[in-house]
Design a protein around this nucleic acid. Structure first.
Lengths: 173, 173
DNA sequence: TGATAATTGTTATGCACTATACCGAATATC
DNA sequence: GATATTCGGTATAGTGCATAACAATTATCA
């Protein structure tokens, strides 16, 4: 597997006078130096994540879905017959916080809570027809606008490598 | 540049019956299917970011520094003589929110606000001696415990490639 | 069986982070 | 010199995230 360089390979050289040569008159208004910050994985990780979420919101704006809501719809589609605790926990959402989230989706008629007959404590979650339709449209927007842009920026091979490493971190770190 | 596989390369095969073969007695308690979620870059991005921040906090716990506070100290060290607006904006922090953050650091005697003589509106930010000492210890902890673990998990080459791609996204996406 | 423990969805609540509007003081602009 | 802009700061609201507690229901087990 090969990764083509997406940009200049890290720091090219130590390089003395990094400060942009002062434009006449300006005493000291060069760009700040990130220093070790650019080597901090967590820093780049967070900034990249914010950008990606921001773009996701833009791309799927016509459907008014947040990344979290989209992930819930995806999970409900792939895993019918599950209850709130199961869906919430696999997404890393705490049950108390999942209630309001489901209220929102249910009030928009995207999914339904159904009291289970086996265990009358739990609510089985199901996508409505509208929920399936919205999910389908969302998937298309995400694939053709959002992920396509990332593919264009990184290249398919790099994107796959990136995804693999992120999954590794999320799983084993 | 080469990326060695950190884990099984994405989805090996479509594979029919994905559901774990039901253990006797259990009706339906297999692990949920993530489905397209595992192909969503934003999803893995956020989960990885949460893990990395979590580990950062653990590693630097003896110094009681959050990732954001650490990034501020780093920036102050590399860019002496800057004011609050400059430091905050390069970190993506809004000025109003930066006030309380600086209050915290200043009350712990890690940095100081100094009224500028050139422009008496602005506060020049400086690390105190204690701030420099804490930063030095934090850097050591981050390098030897936090980043070292990531290096071990991914390998130096992969880690560099990951960092490069994240920086590319943060810069050009 | 019946008493006790555990689970499910839910409410209430608090903390951290983020975002906007606004203010007085100081400076810049023209 | 009048107006606009910038700086640090306050107030405030929204959101994400975490914990405790509760009623209803189910599981456990003496």
């Amino acid at each position: 597997m090969t990764v083509s360089k997406t940009a200049s390979a890290a720091a090219a050289k130590p390089s003395r006078a990094v400060r942009k040569e002062p434009a006449e008159g300006s005493v000291d208004d060069a760009a700040l130096q990130l220093g070790e910050l650019s080597e901090l994985l967590g820093y780049s990780l967070k900034r990249a994540q914010l950008r990606v979420f921001e773009d996701f919101l833009r791309c799927v704006a016509p459907l008014q879905l947040t990344p979290a809501q989209f992930s819930v719809l995806l999970l409900l589609d792939r895993n019918p017959g599950r209850n709130q605790t199961e869906i919430a926990s696999t997404l890393g959402i705490l049950r108390p916080n999942f209630v309001a989230m489901l209220d929102g989706l249910e009030s928009r008629d995207l999914c339904t809570r159904i009291r289970s007959t086996n265990d009358r404590r739990s609510h089985i979650l199901m996508l409505t027809d509208k929920g399936r339709a919205v999910l389908a449209r969302a998937k298309k927007l995400v694939a053709t606008k959002h992920e396509a842009r990332l593919n264009e920026l990184l290249g398919p091979a790099n994107r796959a490598a990136l995804l693999d490493m992120l999954a590794t971190i999320a799983r084993e770190f």
